[in-house]
Amino acid sequence: MLLEATGLGKSYGALKVVDDVSIAVDAGDALGIIGPNGAGKSTLFNLIAGSVRPNRGTIRLAGRDITALSAAARCRAGIGRSFQIPRPWVGLTVYENLLVAAEFGAGEAAAMAGSDCLAILDRLGLGHLADVPAGRLRLLERKRLELARGLATRPRVLLLDEIAGGLTDLECESLIEAIRGIRKEGVAIIWIEHVVHALFAVVDRLAVISFGAKIAEGDPQEVFASRQVQEIYLGVPA
């Protein structure tokens, strides 16, 4: 397995936000994650990307234990991410935002050239905003910048946190197209998304997280149709 997270746990005080979660993806895999608000999905990403330290569990990337590495080191090792609430560098231009990710995030891999960064922006429909300060972007543009920045670090695993919300059908189509393309290049994708139809157009496995624990994982249609998930989402009594 390319990425293997085993028995991850994180508590804030008495509250177990992530409770013994294990997930694994191989190169080119696409794993979807759904779950109600506050279930601990974003926290799980923070644990994998290194922004938050787990209380327990281990994370391996290509067999190497990276649990003790900082977020920066994990990014260089190949874990790219987007933030659910976009965190652009507002004083830098959109293009410079990608340059930072390219220059610092590539690690062993060769850093992307400026023209490659521009190509990513073009691919995600941000090309015309390249020289605009990122602080001037609107929310949806900021979300796309999150994805673009993650890509510019040349990730082997890309963590996407709710990037499809609020898009028009057309925009959603092109986003799905872009993510499929990324996946075809061999990048493993883990995607948290409430927009289920977008998710299903890309992923081949689905995991469900509820109250910090992974309660199901498998074929997206089957998992989504399962009684447990319907209970959570539709409130169907057991």
Partner: peptide, 13 residues
């Protein structure tokens, strides 16, 4: 300067 958490996550030590 603009966002330290994001900088760290993009590989800036």
């Amino acid at each position: 300067r603009d966002d330290e958490v994001a900088a760290e996550s993009a590989g800036v030590v």
